[in-house]
Simulated assay, not measured.
Amino acid sequence: MSHLSNEQLATLKKSLLERKRELEQHFSQNGEENSLLGDSLRNSTGELSSADNHPADTGTETFERSRDLAINRSLSEELSDIEAALQRMKDGTYGICVVSSQEIPYERLEAVPYTAYAVEHVPPRESFSDRPVEEEVMTAPPAGAGRNRQEHSGRFDDAGAWDSVEDYGSASSPVTPPGQDADKKDI
């Protein structure tokens, strides 16, 4: 016996089916394999040669391609999770945590309808331990770094720009050169 009412199950199923349709439409519009993202960079960009491109152009293409691949991987995983949730609905196990067998609250299912976990049993996200080698030689900023240090550095920065230039006037105020009083008139 499910802790969810028939109305709640219908609402959640509608939400799952709607999202599934959106994801399937995304993949069908972009091709099942999302065009040529799996192929080489040259094939996916349509360029015959990268020799005439600036290295920054190639860097941008590489970044955008890796971003698109990551997005597609994430959406594909979401689609799999949705299909699994719909199967759990058919099996009668939807809304039950796969780890603890406790009921998943409706509010959580409403927020993440494809979840198979109660909040306390959600598996940890991937943690990337391969940090950039530069981090090994980086040092912490000196003590006092930040706003207090900038105020007393004697350097000009954006934060105090208006305070420094407002003495010179603006386009909407009369301009008096520094060192001259507006009250004195040279005759």
Rank of each mutant, 00 (worst) to 15 (best):
S2K: 10
L4W: 06
N6H: 15
L17S: 09
L17N: 12
K20C: 03
R21E: 14
H26N: 07
E33Y: 10
N34A: 14
L36T: 06
L37H: 04
L37N: 05
G38I: 00
S40R: 08
R42I: 15
N43V: 08
S44G: 02
T45V: 00
T45Y: 03
E47A: 14
S49W: 08
S50I: 14
S50W: 13
D52H: 13
H54D: 15
H54G: 02
H54K: 01
D57K: 11
T58M: 15
T58F: 13
E61K: 14
E64K: 11
R65V: 05
R65W: 02
S66T: 12
R67E: 11
R67G: 07
R67I: 12
A70V: 02
N72M: 06
R73A: 08
S74G: 04
L75P: 00
E77P: 06
L79R: 05
D81F: 06
I82F: 07
I82K: 04
L86H: 04
Y94L: 01
Y94I: 00
G95R: 03
I96E: 09
C97G: 00
V99A: 08
S100T: 12
S100L: 01
S101W: 09
E103L: 00
Y106E: 01
E107V: 06
E107A: 11
E110H: 12
E110L: 14
V112P: 05
P113G: 10
T115D: 00
T115L: 03
Y117G: 01
Y117S: 03
Y117A: 05
A118C: 06
A118F: 05
E120S: 08
H121G: 01
H121D: 13
S129T: 14
S129Q: 13
R131Y: 14
V133H: 10
V133C: 04
E134K: 10
E134G: 04
E136A: 11
M138I: 07
P141Q: 08
A145M: 08
G146S: 01
R147P: 07
R147L: 15
N148Q: 15
H152Y: 10
G154I: 07
D157V: 09
A159D: 10
G160Q: 11
A161G: 01
A161I: 07
W162F: 15
D163C: 02
D163I: 05
V165C: 06
A171Y: 12
A171W: 13
P174L: 12
V175H: 14
D181C: 08
D181P: 01
D186T: 13
I187G: 13
